[in-house]
Design a protein around this nucleic acid. Sequence first.
DNA 1: CAGTGGTCTAGACCACGGG
DNA 2: CCGTGGTCTAGACCACTGG
Lengths: 242, 242
Amino acid sequence: MSVFKRSPSLTEQVRLYLRQRIINKEFDDGRIPAEQDLAGELNVSRNTIRDALGRLEAEGVIFRRQGAGTFINQAGLLVKTRLEEIIPYETLIKEHGYIPTIILSEVVEEPAPAELSVTLNLEPSSPILVIKKLFLADENPVICNLIYLPLKLIKQPYTTDDLPIPVPQLLLSFCQETFSYYLSEIIPLIASPWLVENLALPQAHTAILSFEEVGYNQDNIPVVKTCSYFRNDLLHLRLIRR
Amino acid sequence: MSVFKRSPSLTEQVRLYLRQRIINKEFDDGRIPAEQDLAGELNVSRNTIRDALGRLEAEGVIFRRQGAGTFINQAGLLVKTRLEEIIPYETLIKEHGYIPTIILSEVVEEPAPAELSVTLNLEPSSPILVIKKLFLADENPVICNLIYLPLKLIKQPYTTDDLPIPVPQLLLSFCQETFSYYLSEIIPLIASPWLVENLALPQAHTAILSFEEVGYNQDNIPVVKTCSYFRNDLLHLRLIRR
DNA sequence: CAGTGGTCTAGACCACGGG
DNA sequence: CCGTGGTCTAGACCACTGG
């Protein structure tokens, strides 16, 4: 009988448990006990342990060497961004050590531009909702986020106060759509005057990182487009590549 | 007895087998057979099938819905870049439909700048090998890559002809080091005159994407630094985020 | 050589989805 | 309701590392 409950999954609980012990520096020699031993200690099967360790390895928290053992990668705990995972920008800012604020600066309904109609499989010029969010880190603007959502998908009435939530929740609450994944393109830009103003950039000619992302629902149908612009001096977009 | 051999792993063989059938459009209804059926058909256990499907899902080639089934995501096959995986730039260019060429334009030995000494845990000003590679796509320069390798790690004599190989092989062949992963930071830049010339940029003021990466060996020790600069008009850096 | 992680199996039960 | 993917188990053997 395991010491863990049934939900969330055992694997996830083991992952969080080990992660905490690593953060607490309970494995002071930088080495994690053998999988067999962990399995015995936690009363779960070795496969469950392995799944949890596999996730921690993907996060960069640990690394494994066949025949030798499993070791802690303290540096991995410093990676604040995991590009391949969708993290709410609020969380991202928090993990960088700032206090996040969201400003919902504009909400307009307008006909979709030609390109967007194609991307989202819409009738030309069908109406879309455009939401503009500005994220502050300790009062400094760091991310500008534009969301393009076809009006025809919106099944619940909304007020402006409802909108400052992450896109996946937005889709679930007001469109009854289950968000599945983003197909994202990373594009470097020279900040336009519009961006210089919105992100309060200290210099006019600044390079900016942008994400153009199309969001898909559980049926693999594109439902939303978003563009995000990052101030790179306050946030670091890092990832682990294998 | 399975129809597959023992190496590479069964999971990997099943992954490649299913991937090929998907590319061949053998599942014309966009649906993949049930895991039980695949396990029976290929004479492997359901876990092996699940592992293989899990990898294909991570690649974005398929998606799964509990209770419903496993479905093909044709769009996932169009993602040429998988940022979280290390792909040789030669391969990346090939997958974009261009013919790749590597030009090894400079190889110099010089003392390490202060910052690099810290990053790679070196004595200040200890000598490093700097390799500059330029990658062409159909004769157009698209990636400029600088590699900084401490001389003290180099255990095999090399000639200039040996160097145009990917960094992990470089480390293995000449340093007896097993490459493990990159810790990468994505940084947008305004192209310097030096980059404008090297990448033959049509305009002087162009935004460029750069990767600054520190490579670690199997013992989690930093062994190499590289900087890469991408022309974003010919290559698309895309990824799937979940 | 003993101990480790890597792979694979066979079987069980659960949670969800759609007819 | 049945069939699907999601989770978990117990046990086996292999490949590699290190003393």
